[in-house]
């Protein structure tokens, strides 16, 4: 698997896929896409990187343990639901705000953070699974 072409192309492929996954995640509310799909794309990116350069390299470049990312995602999703209690609405009710920064209006919502949470859980868990299996492959 570790041919020269693959090893040369892998970093670019990975970064492109990661970028694309974030794009898919963020446009998900209005166009096809979303946290689940984005997360799967990102996980595939890490899997490819792992096949090209070995698991330790991926672990080093990810910095956090994949399951920690997953856990943070779940925490974020739950937190964005809990915010409802501050506004006295039922759990997980979407709350929207549109702050203006330097004349550009940005739509922010708890729903978006929830979707980011989903993304992180999927990225973390699936990457963790793939890396764990690849690791055995190296041995």
């Amino acid at each position: 698997m570790r041919t020269l072409i693959f090893r040369t192309a892998a970093p670019y492929l990975t970064s492109l896929m990661l970028l694309f996954s974030v794009f898919v995640l963020l446009r998900g509310h209005n166009e096809p896409g979303g946290g689940f799909i984005g997360g799967l794309i990102a996980a595939s990116a890490f899997a490819i990187y792992g096949i090209a350069f070995g698991v330790p390299e991926v672990r080093r470049s990810m910095y956090f343990h994949p399951m920690a990312i997953s856990g943070f995602g779940l925490f974020l999703a739950a937190l964005s639901g809990l915010l409802s209690y501050v506004f006295h609405v039922p759990f997980l009710t979407g709350i929207w705000t549109s702050p203006s920064l330097f004349g550009i209006t940005v739509d922010l919502s708890t729903v978006m953070f929830f979707d980011i949470g989903v993304y992180l859980v999927v990225v973390g868990s699936i990457t963790s699974i793939a890396l764990a299996l690849e690791e055995r492959e190296d041995g």
Binding site: L92, G94, F114
Partner: peptide, 10 residues
Amino acid sequence: RNVVNVIIVD
């Protein structure tokens, strides 16, 4: 606008 995604996350 993506009804599927709205169902999932909202």
